[in-house]
Nucleic acid binder design. Structure first.
Lengths: 263, 263
DNA sequence: CGTTATTTTGAGATCCGTCAAGATATGTGG
DNA sequence: CCACATATCTTGACGGATCTCAAAATAACG
C-alpha cells in the first residue's frame, strides 16, 4: 500500500542537499556551486504546481535567488503561530501541514491541510501578522520565500506576478468551496468530498488516487469538516460497509470513486 | 431610522457625475475636465477602504487612469456570472451585492455580501473565469478595474502592489473566518456574528453601528450562515425577546452589542 | 512492553431542518 | 390611490441527523 513517506523520500532525493536540511548561503557560494545547485526550483518535483509554474528557465533561476533558505519542521512542531510577524510565505517541499485557527472564544478549528507543492502563509499578508498556526503533520521541509523579495521580483517578472495572483486567488476559491461544503451538505457528503479532494491532490502529484494514508487524525478531519470525530469514524465505517472503500486506521483504499462522488 | 439609501446618496453626491451613471472617456477628455474630475478616486468617499488606500495623490491619479469606467447594475441584475471570462475586478461605489456559488450538485449558496468600498471578482483570477454570480441587492454602481492594467500599474507602484496583495489576503482571512463560523458554532452564534459583522462594516463606513437596514432576505442570510431562513427568523425573534435588539422586517436596531458578542 | 493517543461503536439527548399555515411587506396595473 | 398578486417573514409542531457522553478496542510511541 502506498505510504506518503515514499513520495517524501523521492522528492527529497531529487534535490542535491544530501540529507542536510538547513541550507546556508555561506556553505554554498554561487561560484563553487554546481549549476544544478543554482537551479534548485528547476530540479524540484513540485515545480509544476508551485510558484515556479509557467516560468522560463531564466526566470526560475531568478526566483531561486529569492528562495534563500529551507526550514525543516518536525512532526507536531509549528512553522509559524498566529500573531507571529509575517515576513515570508512557505512552499511545502516535503511533508504536510495543517493550519489551525483559534478564535477569541470557541474551540480551535482546522482551516486547511497542505501537502508538498502547496503554499502556506498567504493569510498573513493583509495584517502583516499570521492569523493561524501551521503545524507539521509529519517531519517536513519548506522553502522560505521572503515576501518583500518576492514582491520585488513580481514587479520585474510579469509571469511570476501573474502566478502569485493566481495562487492567492486559488486560495480564495478553495476556501469558498469549503464554505459551501460546510454550509450546505450532510456529514456523509462532507466526508466523501474530503476523501475525493485528498484523492485528487495525490493524483495531481503523481501518486495513487485510490490508495493512500491520511496524515491527520479523525479529530482533525472532523474539525476541518465541521463535524465530530465520532461522525467521521461512523461515516467511514458506513462507507466501508457499503463497499465504497476500505479503511484500516489511517490507510484508505477507495473502491468506487463515482459512488463517493454521487453522495 | 438609518436607511442605507441615505449613505448611498451621500456617496453619489460626492462625485462629479451629476446623475450620469455610465462614464465615457470621450465625454470627458482630459484637457477639458476640471482637475477634480481627473481625480475621481481622490474624491470618492470609499477611498480609505478601497484600492487607493495608502497611496499618495500622484499615485491615486495614476490609478484613476486604470479605472476607466463605471457600470450601474439594477437591483436583482448580475454584475457577472459564473463562467464569464475574467477581465476586471470591481469596486462597489454605490449599493451592495451578494455572490452566489452554484455547485455541480446541491443547492446554490451565498458566499458573501459586499457593500460600498468592497471589492468583487478576485475569485476569477486563478482560472481566468468567474466562479460565482454577483447579484446587486439594490441599484448599484461599481468601478470597473481592468485587471491586466492594474497588474501593470502594480509592477510600477510598490504601495499599490502591496495594497492589492493585502486585499487578496484579506479576502482569504475573511473566508477563513467564515469557515470557522460555519464549522464550529451554533445557529445563534452565527446570527449574532453576522449582525456584528454588518454593524462593524457600517461603522467603518461612518454610519450607525446599531441601527441599519439589511438589504438581503432571510433566505440569503440563512444560506450565507448555513442555516434555514426559518432559523434566522426564529433567532432574530429570540434575540428581540431577550432585549438584545429590535427587529422590524429588514430594519435592525442593536441594543446590546456586548451581549450579542457574548453568544 | 507499558503508557498514551487514537479510533470505534453504542445509547440517549438536542439542535435544527422540514412541512405547514397565516401574517406582513412589496410591487403592479387599473 | 386602491386592490390584487406575489414575495417575504413569522410561528408552530414534529422528526431526524448529528452531538454528547461513555466504554472498549486498537494503534502509536518511548
Amino acid at each position: 500500500m502506498f505510504d506518503m513517506h515514499t513520495g517524501v523520500d523521492a522528492a527529497w532525493d531529487s534535490t542535491d542537499m544530501s540529507g542536510t536540511f538547513a541550507r546556508r548561503e555561506d556553505a554554498m557560494p554561487a561560484e563553487q556551486a554546481p549549476s544544478h545547485a543554482r537551479t534548485r526550483c528547476a530540479t524540484c518535483m513540485m515545480r509544476s504546481i508551485c510558484m515556479a509554474a509557467s516560468l522560463e528557465a531564466s526566470e526560475v533561476a531568478r526566483l531561486d535567488n529569492v528562495v534563500q533558505s529551507w526550514r525543516s519542521v518536525r512532526q507536531g512542531e509549528r512553522l509559524y503561530r498566529a500573531g507571529d510577524p509575517f515576513r515570508s510565505i512557505y512552499a511545502v517541499r516535503v511533508g504536510s501541514f495543517k493550519t489551525v485557527v483559534a478564535p477569541a472564544r470557541g474551540k480551535e478549528t482546522i482551516s486547511g491541510f497542505f501537502m508538498a507543492g502547496d503554499s502556506l502563509g498567504m493569510d498573513g499578508i493583509c495584517l502583516e501578522t499570521h492569523n493561524c498556526d501551521a503545524i507539521a503533520l509529519e517531519d517536513s521541509v519548506v522553502c522560505v520565500i521572503p515576501f518583500h523579495l518576492l514582491e520585488a521580483l513580481c514587479r520585474e517578472i510579469k509571469p511570476l506576478q501573474r502566478q502569485l495572483h493566481k495562487m492567492l486567488s486559488a486560495e480564495i476559491v478553495r476556501e469558498s468551496r469549503q464554505m459551501m461544503l460546510l454550509g450546505s451538505t450532510s456529514a456523509e457528503q462532507r466526508v466523501a468530498a474530503f476523501l475525493l479532494s485528498v484523492s485528487a491532490r495525490y493524483r495531481e502529484r503523481g501518486y495513487s488516487a485510490t490508495s493512500f494514508v491520511l496524515r491527520m487524525t479523525r479529530e482533525d478531519i472532523g474539525s476541518f469538516l465541521g463535524v465530530t470525530l465520532e461522525t467521521v469514524s461512523r461515516t467511514l465505517s458506513k462507507f466501508q460497509q457499503e463497499g465504497l472503500l476500505t479503511v484500516q486506521g489511517k490507510s484508505i483504499e477507495l473502491l468506487n470513486l463515482d459512488a463517493l462522488d454521487a453522495r
